[in-house]
């Protein structure tokens, strides 16, 4: 009985934190803030999916989780690189 309530609570709080990040995304004075916000959103989604996989006790979500983690990292790095020199692949 304990686990379902905890997982539901977890789902709820993660969505709240995602809403907060979204708010930061909208307001974010400088652009890096917005990148940070989007990075946190992807982490929250990862957390969300893991909680869901616990809730439904399925194995399928772990691929999505790993993929989201990888892609989250990739996009934030790309955005950051873009910000710095304007050229994402700077020719050495």
């Amino acid at each position: 009985m304990l686990l379902p309530t905890v997982t539901n609570l977890a789902l709820f709080t993660i969505t709240i934190s995602m809403a907060l990040c979204l708010w930061r995304l909208i307001v974010g004075p400088s652009f890096p803030d917005r990148v940070a916000a989007s990075d946190t959103i992807s982490t929250n989604i990862v957390a969300l999916l893991i909680v869901l996989s616990i809730k439904f006790t399925t194995q399928d979500y772990f691929d999505a989780v790993l993929v989201i983690a990888i892609l989250g990292f990739l996009s934030s790095v790309a955005l950051a690189k873009f910000l710095i020199g304007g050229s994402v692949f700077d020719r050495d």
């Binding site: 993929v67 790095v77 994402v88 692949f89 700077d90």
Partner: peptide
């Protein structure tokens, strides 16, 4: 996914490398 990997490589080391 593999292209994502190569992109990461591009990001980190630049196309020359």
């Amino acid at each position: 996914m593999t292209s994502a990997t190569f992109i990461l490589l591009y990001l980190a080391l630049g196309p020359g490398a």
